[in-house]
């Protein structure tokens, strides 16, 4: 883009590379609005290189949001005698869109570069950019089945060797178990047999065991005394050695025992103020502030699934 833009106030020109540099600092909502400034701005903001640069900045500045599915704990909003799953909904900690007002069962499979993969009713799969509010319905794939129940394990990630987003699905409905990979580029599923691909698929599936928290790798461990510890990996030292620091111990958590056998606590989100959101099992998100060592608040809804997503312009198409 060789053309220069003339500024009104002073007779200086702001070169376009500087404009791009400034724009990478903006949140997604402002950028989408500024597509209306001119055709040139629209083409800059829509370009692949800009989207990549903006994503890098978003990660660097920790522009991350929490997404969770929940059902209402207010009894007035629930039918008597049990869960009314029609009250289940997806929420994010910024005001926004809702593509599934009355779904039966929502799962959040994964989150990568601003794209979140969710399933509704165990079959409909959506790839969703919550920041741009764009979503795509992923075609369903057939697996042979012998029982009435669907049992699937999903994974979602970015494959940088092919610059493609991929979904892995293993069916446990019938033996031998089958694994298929969906490619966003080809918009199709492919059955995989080769062991290298299976290993790759396995990594995609389990990458979220280690969470990227506030730009650092992190994990949550439970000690023998049932304290919950959050560890983060420090930047590589000069000797290229990774070191882990325990940044927070939750020994005051009121019901640690119930997590002993259940799903593991998972750090889901950390911001610059030092707030850390931790999901305990699939039912509670607690936000702590690790700098002031205080518990901030507890999300007063039953959390069924949660994850974080980074603000990005990445297209789900």
């Amino acid at each position: 883009m060789g053309k220069r833009i003339k500024r009104q106030s002073i007779n200086h020109e702001v070169p376009e590379e500087i404009i791009e540099e400034i724009l990478t600092n903006l949140p997604v909502k402002s950028l989408i609005r500024f597509k209306c400034v001119s055709k040139q701005w629209r083409s800059v903001i829509s370009s692949k290189s800009f989207i990549q640069e903006h994503l890098k900045k978003s990660m660097q500045f920790n522009r991350q949001h929490l997404i969770y599915s929940s059902f209402d704990t207010n009894p007035n909003n629930r039918s008597s005698g049990g869960f009314d799953y029609t009250r289940q909904r997806l929420r994010q900690n910024t005001k926004g869109c809702n593509i599934c007002p009355s779904s039966i069962c929502i799962r959040i499979i994964g989150s990568c570069n601003g794209l979140v993969l969710v399933t509704f009713n165990f079959k409909d799969i959506f790839l969703w950019n919550l920041s741009t509010r764009k979503f795509k319905s992923i075609p369903t794939t057939y697996f042979p089945k012998k029982s009435l129940f669907h049992k699937f394990q999903y994974g979602f990630g970015y494959d940088d060797s092919t610059d493609d987003y991929k979904i892995v699905c293993t069916s446990f409905c019938a033996e031998p178990y089958q694994t298929k990979i969906y490619s966003l580029k080809t918009d199709s599923w492919k059955r995989i047999e080769h062991w290298v691909l299976v290993v790759k698929a396995y990594f995609l599936m389990h990458a979220r065991v280690l969470q990227v928290l506030g730009g650092y790798l992190s994990f949550v461990g439970i000690s023998s005394t049932l304290d919950v510890n959050i560890w983060v990996m420090n930047k590589y030292s000069e000797a290229n050695q990774e070191t882990w620091t325990k940044i927070w111990t939750l020994s005051d958590f009121s019901h640690p025992k119930r997590y002993n056998n259940g799903p593991r606590p998972k750090p889901i989100w950390m911001n610059k103020n030092g707030d850390i959101g931790v999901a305990f099992g699939e039912s509670i998100v607690v936000v702590y502030n690790y700098k002031s060592k205080s518990r901030m608040y507890r999300v007063d809804e039953i959390i069924l699934a949660s994850n974080i997503y980074v603000e990005s312009l990445v297209s789900p198409f």
Partner: peptide, 27 residues
Amino acid sequence: VSAKIAQVMEKKSVGWVRRKFGIENDY
């Protein structure tokens, strides 16, 4: 400075941005 300019722009209107950057509306 880039980050600061972005912070100033964040909630501004399209018209404000056009005037400040001297951009002609080609739509």
